[in-house]
Computed example of a mutant assay.
Amino acid sequence: MDIRKRVDISAYLVIGPENTKGRSVGIIIKEAVEAGFTFVQVRSKVASARELIQLTREAADAIAEVGKSHYVALVVNDRLDVILAARKEGIKVDGIHVGQSDIPVKVCREYLGEDSIIGLSARTTELFEYIKTADASLLDYFGVGPLHETLTKPDCGLDTNGKVLTRSFEEIAKLAKLSSIPVVVGGGVKLQDIPQLAQTGVEGFFVVSAVTKADDPKSASAELVDAWKVHKI
Rank of each mutant, 00 (worst) to 15 (best):
G67F: 02
T166E: 05
R87G: 12
G119E: 13
I83P: 02
L151I: 02
S168R: 08
F128G: 08
A210Y: 00
K92T: 15
G201E: 00
S24E: 13
Q199G: 10
T20Q: 04
T166R: 05
F169M: 10
V25L: 08
S10P: 15
E171P: 07
Q192I: 10
K177W: 03
R6P: 01
S209F: 00
I27W: 00
L178C: 15
A136E: 13
Q54N: 11
W228I: 12
K213L: 04
I96A: 06
L138N: 06
H148T: 03
A85C: 02
G157W: 09
G16T: 02
D135I: 07
D155K: 15
L191P: 05
R79Y: 06
K218L: 11
V75G: 09
G204K: 04
K68R: 15
D159G: 05
T200F: 08
T166P: 07
A214C: 13
D8Q: 13
I91R: 09
F169Y: 15
A176L: 12
A11H: 15
Q41T: 04
A86E: 13
F205H: 12
S10E: 12
L55E: 01
I83N: 03
P154Q: 10
G90D: 09
C156G: 01
E110V: 04
G145E: 01
V66E: 13
V207P: 00
T20A: 12
H70M: 14
Y71D: 14
A11Y: 09
E171A: 11
K92S: 06
Y111I: 11
G22R: 08
Y141M: 01
I172E: 08
A62K: 09
V107Y: 03
R167Y: 07
C156I: 03
V42T: 02
E110H: 14
L74Y: 14
K30D: 04
I131N: 01
I27P: 00
S116G: 05
E110K: 09
E114R: 03
D155Q: 14
I63A: 10
E65N: 03
K88R: 11
I172R: 08
D61R: 11
D216H: 08
R79M: 05
V105Y: 02
A134H: 14
G99D: 06
D61N: 08
S10T: 04
F128C: 06
I53L: 09
T38H: 10
L74E: 14
L138M: 13
I29G: 03
G22H: 13
A136P: 05
K68H: 04
L74P: 12
